[in-house]
Design a protein around this nucleic acid. Structure first.
Lengths: 343, 343
DNA sequence: TGTTAGCACTCTACCTCGATGAGTGCTAAC
DNA sequence: GTTAGCACTCATCGAGGTAGAGTGCTAACA
């Protein structure tokens, strides 16, 4: 059996109607609502075919039909009209984007908020991964008696500071010396690459500042090994899910929100299999908790390099055309903002 | 009408049973479950009195009784046996506390997690407020060409760093000079206290580094004016609420979670009216969304100074004795950890 | 006078049952 | 190939009926 134009029209009608109403739709309603020029009986026959092809299914005998995952997939790939953002959405984005945004965190928070507000769904934003954390440079600054500020510049340019105990009062010269030794030996190394021999060398050159070095190494371990805040998934509009009729069941809400609490699976989900825009529908999802959901995700770039991703999660019954348009637009906008920020 | 010993016993039985079962309880069940030495008819009479006194109420005619807010209040104030943590809880806390915790953020996250796990309720933790943000000291460190790291030490000891454009390449000496001028003029001032005259002085002393100063001032404004991350309420175990029978209604969940998304009201709620432990029951709550909830909150100290608070939020039907014991213990533990951290 | 047994009454939760209506598949006519 | 007609299915909804928990009142009892 083949898909012909009429079957396509009917499938499109079913998907569109179900997206709009969340109710199964029957042949008679299709005949009434959509002007296909054939009777409900004909549509009925075609629907039987569509069911056999796996594109639609019945929740129970003598209910209407709803699209299957495969049906949504066919819709997204072959039937959907690409959509532009409407004037209102454009205006919201314009207005929001005109606000001055400095920090990366703000861009992320902002993008997530906008995404979830425009789609009425849940947004996921993965901040730019900064690559391997390797040691760049170390500085010491005076703080309280017996304590200094250690400023670490990682090789990727990230800067962090931490308070460090130095035990006895060390002079500025001594501190500078310690920093220089570290800078010389460790530049470009990650913590796991620090060999025993390297440590030996540092200790032997700085035998007197043992406490300081121990503390500094502890701190470096924590900094270079630690999870980057930016690698967390930022969720927005999780409550929007509660407005979806498919989540009027409390048990479903619970399992869904449980997944939201755990960062790693989400990160894996969002880390793109390929660049650009991805649509993952229902059961295509690797997370079984999301088998009733679809995810529209896309990557964004800075200076031509893909460094992060955003996504919108909703029930499989989501307005694909609109959400795709929004996600596409937002990643472009994000790329632009982040590129502008760079000097 | 007066409360006598028997009324007290009956009220205690009602509260305890309702806390355990979440079901209204009737006179016969009380007579069976609790050995009060009187018949159900007598208990019935007493219950009529208790209802008249406002301590219990009927959801509908011929249902059992449940405690009213006033009933819980009387229970907490007069009837409740103070409770010790049990062995299992002790062990969990011991085990968790033995982990090495460095950063304040970790202490907060950790406390929240523990609180929500032990109580199966939602925890709220308000980090230590750091007082007014006033300028302490400024440093510059080399970064990329045309950019420097500006390290700001606030007067309360907090340290932050930010990347700053400096326009033309400035020498280390020039940068140090700029920092010195700022340090001299601004120490101890908040942004709102910076007068036009002060700015004039700075500009006139540093006429050549106009761009740097503008950028630095922008940054200072953002840093000193900005919300402290620590002043956010950290929520833990919000999903636990979904396990409470009183939140099997989706609409209630929605309004509750909506409140969780907004920081300010929660902050106000947790900011203690008085030191030590507070119990706020149902309608005593200022937030109308929490009128079915109770909040057990307590402050914690560092070096004798009250600097933050934690709380546990649950349905009014919560195990007050246990939660109070846990919150009390955790604030003590938190005080201890934070004091130990201080040198 | 306080306590208790007994009883009529109330009200929810739950079940059953039939009506309703949307929808289907099949068949035969066009 | 298309359509009208028809018997059939099944979820939903409301009505009615029952069970059970609980109450308040009254009268008897110690």
């Amino acid at each position: 059996m083949q898909m012909d134009e009429r079957k396509r029209k009917i499938l499109r009608a079913i998907v569109q109607d179900y997206i709009a109403t969340a109710e199964p739709i029957g042949s008679r309603t299709i005949a009434r609502k959509f002007d296909l020029g054939v009777s409900s009986a004909t549509i009925r026959n075609e629907m039987a075919d569509l069911e056999e092809l796996g594109f639609i299914e019945q929740p129970y005998t003598s209910a209407g039909r709803i699209p299957s995952d495969a049906g949504y997939r066919y819709f997204v790939d072959c039937l959907m009209d690409p959509q532009e953002l409407n004037a209102e959405e454009m205006e919201i984005i314009e207005r929001e984007s005109s606000k001055r945004i400095n920090e990366l965190q703000e861009v992320i928070a902002h993008t997530g908020k906008l995404l979830s507000e425009l789609t009425n769904l849940t947004s996921l934003v993965l901040g730019p991964h900064k690559g391997k954390s390797t040691f760049g440079k170390m500085h010491f600054l005076p703080y309280q008696p017996g304590q200094v500020i250690m400023v670490i510049v990682k090789e990727n340019g990230a800067v962090e500071n931490h308070i460090l105990d130095v035990g006895e009062n060390l002079s500025a010269e001594e501190l500078q010396h310690v920093a220089e030794v570290f800078n010389q030996k460790m530049r470009g190394y990650s913590i796991s690459q620090v060999k025993r021999s390297m440590l030996h060398e540092i200790y032997s050159e700085l035998s007197r500042q043992r406490l300081l070095i121990d503390n500094a190494m502890d701190m470096l371990r924590a900094i270079l090994d630690g999870k980057e805040e930016d690698e967390r998934i930022h969720l927005g509009g999780t409550l929007n899910m509660l407005n979806q009729p498919e989540f009027k069941d409390l048990a479903k809400v619970k399992t869904l929100f449980k997944v939201f609490e755990d960062n790693e699976p989400l990160k894996k989900l969002l880390t793109p299999r390929q660049e650009g825009l991805n649509v993952t529908i229902g059961g295509e999802n690797t997370l079984k908790e999301f088998r009733d959901c679809s995810l529209i995700s896309a990557t964004y770039k800075v200076n031509g390099l893909t460094i992060g991703a955003v996504g919108v999660l909703g029930p499989t019954r989501m307005d694909y055309a609109k959400v795709i348009a929004i996600v596409d637009f937002m990643t472009r906008s994000m790329t632009e903002i982040l590129t502008r920020r760079r000097r």
